[in-house]
């Protein structure tokens, strides 16, 4: 699997709190996610001595595509659900397909690295720079890779396409001259049922070789 999960990055509670402060949230907003974070390691009362909170809504601020967005979520809400179901307006470009980290359709960037949004709690995404497909380009002004997907027909039904593009964009950002093997590895966690893989490779390779720029 090429998708870096949040666990690989070691999103500790400390990072999480620091992130929360860094985006300048009020203390009330920081408090709720902190409680939720504690639930995973502590018993019924956390270090702060406050009661454990596993339910109920919390307003958090997610930094999505360069803007802060207030989203009301529950501790159990995945980042994917926060984007699709709770953000206003909703960000539905990120797709729900398996909801279990198996298909890559919900790939977003967390601090520049690809992650499955269905495997990350919204609360754990606070304080991190998130990028979704909506933050990459618009139909009028697409990113080079998005343009290349259109030129090479790297999509059919299109449901896997945002995830494919996010995985490959992360690879190309990190490794602009990636070869085919590296590009294939980068999207190895992205399933496409229509079978557009050959065109997807062409599209990504063309960008790596400077073709679509």
């Amino acid at each position: 699997m090429s998708n870096q999960r949040s666990g690989d990055r070691g999103l500790s509670r400390r990072d999480f709190l620091r992130g929360g402060v860094a985006v300048g949230l009020g203390s009330a907003a920081i408090g709720a996610p902190a409680d939720a974070a504690q639930d995973r390691s502590d018993d019924s009362t956390g270090e702060s001595g406050r009661a454990r909170r596993t339910k109920g809504k919390t307003e958090i601020v997610l930094r999505i595509n360069g803007s802060d967005r207030r989203v009301e979520v529950e501790p159990r809400t995945s980042l994917l659900s926060a984007l699709r179901d709770f953000a206003s307006p909703p960000l539905t470009g990120t797709k729900l397909v398996c909801d279990g980290g198996n298909c890559g359709a919900c790939t977003v960037h967390v601090d520049g690295r690809p992650a499955a949004a269905c495997m990350l709690l919204a609360l754990d995404a606070v304080g991190h720079e998130l990028r979704t497909i909506e933050g990459l380009g618009t139909p009028e002004e697409m990113s080079p890779l998005q343009q290349s997907f259109c030129d090479h027909d790297g999509m059919m039904c299109g449901f896997c396409t945002p995830g494919m593009i996010m995985s490959l964009t992360a690879e190309l950002d990190r490794n602009p001259k990636a070869n085919e093997e590296q590009l294939r590895a980068a999207c190895a966690g992205n399933l496409c049922r229509c079978g557009t893989y050959p065109q997807v490779f062409e599209a990504a390779l063309s960008v790596a070789k400077g073709g679509a720029r």
Binding site: G93, Q146, M155
Partner: peptide, 17 residues
């Protein structure tokens, strides 16, 4: 080229879901 390519590639294509 697919006329709805840009909508699909940018996540703007509106599916039922």
């Amino acid at each position: 080229k697919r006329v709805d390519g840009p909508a699909k590639a940018t996540g703007r294509a509106g599916y039922g879901h």
